[in-house]
Design a protein around this nucleic acid. Structure first.
Length: 463
RNA sequence: UCCCCUGUAGCUCAGUCGGUAGAGCGAGUGGCUGUUAACCACUAUGUCGUUGGUUCGAGUCCAACCGGGGGAGCCA
């Protein structure tokens, strides 16, 4: 079907010319004057278009009067200026063909507000609502902005593997990948014989593309991954998913300071782009989801991020006259309440904490000269806490090897990671951004399960 | 995994002291109207999450289980 998207029809001034549109009926109002108003949405924009259908259309009584929310129709007609308030253009229909009916007695979406918990149970229909349509378009705009930023700044998009044989990712519980018959698992002396499994070894779904990104950064310079990531943690919160999307840039010839600068530039670019591309969606979120969100985002765009070493941030929190539920201490790290107090009350803008105690950070982060801290950074946003975590990577062979041994990790698993430090090693750095959490933040939505189209969480993999 | 809350009509919820169930929205029918969260009138909603227990009697009290939500931890 050749059709005009409603997004384009609404912006057109090509009045009194033929137009074909198609979409799903949001609501219909009948006039006994012999015509009906149909609010039609095709997903191309937040806005509906109003269709005027009158009784001169042959199937007016048989079809049009029976239309209800959820029906799909195609309309041929004329784009006209609207004589009434509320919309500038509308479509005067010459013909309306019903493509698919939706029985109002059983169609779950009503012309009223539904709870997000209810909509989660009908994930196949929820994208037809204002909120979930808006989220899908914001997700798209944000994805595109991410690619645009990196492509414009000399990064290559890297497809890091989904299935990994590395045991050394160490970022949480992993999902096993196997083709074994679970009722008959091959064993040798009681132990599972992975040599008979599909890959001839134990494999899992990736928890991070960072280590692979380092490989390519040390060949192409700047790369980024943007793909799904899997964590088998039994965490049941509004901020966790078992399957989520992560962005991980990695840059060669780059230290922690440049890493922070890039991350700040990156975040500001993708937020600004998304706000500019989705004004209707942002206005909706600000009105119905979180009436602070546009202000909060504007504040972030206009504030230089404040870089504070962990040691100083700790001192600031200890000096603050506040009782926290969890104790503060060099070795404790910061809890969510500490992070939020720091960025919301003490600094009142985004904060980048750097130089963390080495004990609370990963083995691959570069040891600082003080011997106590590593060149790590966390970016904290008001109201949400950590949005980005990154570091300069340890590029010195001996230092990295000693750290792996010190932590009792299996050194043989890291042979290729260590070889990168033996052959043309250079300083490099990167960071990770939880994509869904950023969508959550930008939209003001409370639960990450309402941010991703089909959430996977413990005990839930429906649709 | 731990703590707290919750489960009643299609949806959102009320239901007092234990006495066999209610509202709004949605739906249907009729009326009215260039309407736009339309409006007005009327009509029908039901295994009160499941199982068991206490009681003359349980939506209500007790126990277990199941589902949902919030918070914490882990993290992105």
């Amino acid at each position: 079907m050749k059709r005009t998207q409603i997004k384009d029809a609404l912006q057109s001034t090509n009045y009194n010319n033929p137009i074909t549109i198609a979409g799903w009926v949001r609501t219909k109002r009948d006039s006994k004057g012999g015509f009906s108003f149909i609010e039609l949405n095709d997903g191309s924009s937040f806005q509906n278009i109003q269709v005027i259908a009158d009784e001169s259309i042959p199937n007016y009584t048989s079809d049009i009067l029976k239309l209800t929310a959820g029906c799909s129709i195609a309309v041929q007609g004329t784009l006209v200026e609207s004589p009434a308030q509320g919309q500038s253009v509308e479509v005067k229909a010459n013909s309306v063909s019903v493509i698919g009916l939706a029985d109002p007695e059983s169609y779950p979406l009503q012309k009223k507000r539904h709870s997000f918990e209810f909509l989660r149970q009908i994930a196949h229909l929820r994208p037809r609502t204002n909120t979930f349509g808006a989220i899908a378009r914001v997700r798209n705009a944000l994805s595109f902005a991410i690619h645009q930023f990196f492509q414009d700044n000399g990064f290559f998009y890297l497809h890091s593997p989904i299935i990994t044989g590395s045991d050394c990712e160490g970022a949480g519980e992993m999902f096993r990948v196997t083709t074994f018959d679970l009722n008959n698992i091959p064993r040798v002396d009681g132990a599972i014989d992975f040599s008979q499994d599909f890959f001839g070894k134990s494999t899992n779904l990736t928890v991070s593309g960072q280590l692979e990104a380092e490989i390519y950064a040390l060949a192409l310079g700047n790369v980024y991954t943007f793909g799904p990531t899997f964590r088998a943690e039994n965490s049941n919160t509004s901020r966790h998913l078992s399957e989520f999307w992560m962005v991980e840039p990695e840059m060669a010839f780059c230290d922690l300071q440049q890493d922070c600068e890039t991350a700040e530039k990156f975040l500001k670019f993708i937020i600004r782009e998304t706000m500019e591309k989705c004004p209707d969606e942002m206005a909706f979120f600000n009105k119905f989801i979180d009436n602070q969100i546009v202000e909060t985002l504007g504040h972030i765009l206009n504030s230089p991020f404040e870089i504070i070493p962990y040691k100083e941030a700790l001192a600031m929190l200890q000096k603050a006259n506040v009782t926290f539920e969890y104790p503060l201490g060099w070795e404790h790290g910061f809890q969510a309440e500490h992070e939020r107090y720091l960025t919301e009350e003490l600094v009142k803008k985004p904060v980048i904490i750097i130089d963390f105690p080495k004990e609370i950070k990963a083995f691959y982060m570069r040891r600082n000269d003080d011997g106590q801290t590593v060149a790590a950074m966390d970016i904290l946003f008001p109201h949400i806490g950590e949005i980005v975590g990154g570091s300069q990577r340890e590029e010195r062979y001996d230092v990295l090897k000693n750290r792996i041994l010190e932590l009792g990790l299996h050194i043989e698993d890291y042979w290729w990671y260590l070889e990168l430090r033996q052959f043309g090693s250079v300083e490099h750095a990167g960071f990770g951004l939880g994509f869904d959490r950023l969508v959550q933040f930008i939209s003001g939505m409370k639960n990450i399960r309402d941010i991703i189209p089909f959430p996977r969480t413990p005990q839930n993999a429906d649709f």
